[in-house]
Computed example of a mutant assay.
Amino acid sequence: MSEDYPRLLEDREVLLARGVERRQARLRGWLDGYDGPRPLYRIELFLGRDRYTATAMDMFESLVRLRLQLEPRGWTIAVQGARRDTYPSGMCRDMGGGMRIYVTRTGSKTSAADLVDTLADAELDQIVTVAEQKTRHAEWCESATGRRV
């Protein structure tokens, strides 16, 4: 049986910010196929004449790699996967390709009601750097489980 790859999963406009500057950009997310049993996800961002691309084993990690390309240029991308209080579980990554992530709350464990789409729109005041998001996730893990990550 033949699969059709690459498979387009997301294709829409997103908001980017750099200081007070706001720009719309085209975001595309792809499932490129499989490297053995492992999926390969790709995210592309078209900002004017610039094109940014990142590939990883799940969409969240592809987004992280894309953000790491944008951050040195001062850009942030207003999607749920870039929020201070969102992060995928291992199951979200392994079973769902990182397409959905959890909104976390200090001291509380997550449930299915806390799931949001990784590439869905988010408010700019919720967006942080990759480093800030990882730090906040480690703090949440400790508050929710009592264990350090």
Score class of each variant (00 low, 15 high):
residue 55 T to F: 08
residue 56 A to F: 04
residue 57 M to A: 15
residue 57 M to R: 15
residue 57 M to N: 13
residue 57 M to C: 10
residue 57 M to V: 12
residue 58 D to F: 12
residue 58 D to C: 13
residue 59 M to T: 14
residue 59 M to V: 13
residue 59 M to N: 11
residue 59 M to A: 15
residue 59 M to P: 09
residue 59 M to G: 09
residue 60 F to V: 08
residue 60 F to Q: 05
residue 60 F to R: 07
residue 60 F to M: 10
residue 60 F to N: 06
residue 60 F to D: 06
residue 60 F to K: 04
residue 61 E to R: 15
residue 61 E to C: 14
residue 61 E to Q: 15
residue 61 E to Y: 15
residue 62 S to L: 13
residue 63 L to W: 07
residue 63 L to M: 12
residue 63 L to T: 04
residue 63 L to H: 06
residue 63 L to F: 14
residue 64 V to I: 15
residue 64 V to W: 08
residue 64 V to Y: 11
residue 64 V to G: 05
residue 65 R to V: 08
residue 65 R to T: 10
residue 65 R to A: 09
residue 66 L to F: 12
residue 66 L to H: 07
residue 66 L to C: 12
residue 67 R to E: 03
residue 67 R to Q: 08
residue 68 L to D: 03
residue 68 L to Q: 11
residue 68 L to V: 07
residue 68 L to W: 07
residue 68 L to C: 09
residue 69 Q to P: 13
residue 69 Q to H: 11
residue 69 Q to Y: 12
residue 70 L to N: 00
residue 70 L to A: 06
residue 70 L to E: 00
residue 70 L to V: 01
residue 71 E to Q: 09
residue 71 E to W: 06
residue 71 E to N: 07
residue 71 E to M: 04
residue 71 E to V: 05
residue 71 E to K: 03
residue 72 P to T: 04
residue 72 P to V: 09
residue 72 P to Y: 07
residue 72 P to R: 05
residue 72 P to C: 08
residue 72 P to S: 08
residue 73 R to K: 14
residue 73 R to F: 06
residue 74 G to P: 09
residue 74 G to D: 05
residue 74 G to Y: 09
residue 74 G to S: 10
residue 74 G to E: 09
residue 75 W to P: 00
residue 76 T to E: 08
residue 77 I to Y: 03
residue 77 I to L: 10
residue 77 I to T: 01
residue 78 A to W: 05
residue 78 A to G: 04
residue 78 A to M: 05
residue 78 A to D: 03
residue 79 V to P: 02
residue 79 V to K: 00
residue 79 V to L: 03
residue 79 V to T: 01
residue 79 V to C: 05
residue 80 Q to I: 00
residue 80 Q to L: 02
residue 80 Q to E: 10
residue 80 Q to A: 02
residue 81 G to V: 03
residue 81 G to H: 04
residue 81 G to I: 00
residue 81 G to W: 02
residue 81 G to N: 04
residue 81 G to D: 01
residue 82 A to M: 07
residue 82 A to Q: 02
residue 82 A to K: 00
residue 82 A to P: 00
residue 83 R to S: 06
residue 83 R to P: 01
residue 83 R to M: 05
residue 83 R to D: 03
residue 83 R to T: 04
residue 83 R to K: 14
residue 84 R to F: 11
residue 84 R to K: 12
residue 84 R to M: 12
residue 84 R to P: 03
residue 84 R to T: 05
residue 84 R to D: 07
residue 85 D to M: 06
residue 85 D to Y: 08
residue 85 D to C: 12
residue 86 T to E: 02
residue 86 T to I: 05
residue 86 T to L: 04
residue 86 T to M: 05
residue 86 T to Y: 02
residue 86 T to Q: 01
residue 87 Y to S: 12
residue 87 Y to K: 06
residue 87 Y to Q: 09
residue 87 Y to D: 04
residue 87 Y to N: 09
residue 87 Y to E: 06
residue 87 Y to I: 07
residue 88 P to E: 02
residue 88 P to H: 05
residue 88 P to L: 02
residue 89 S to I: 11
residue 90 G to D: 12
residue 90 G to W: 14
residue 90 G to Q: 15
residue 90 G to F: 14
residue 91 M to W: 14
residue 92 C to N: 08
residue 92 C to T: 10
residue 92 C to A: 13
residue 92 C to R: 03
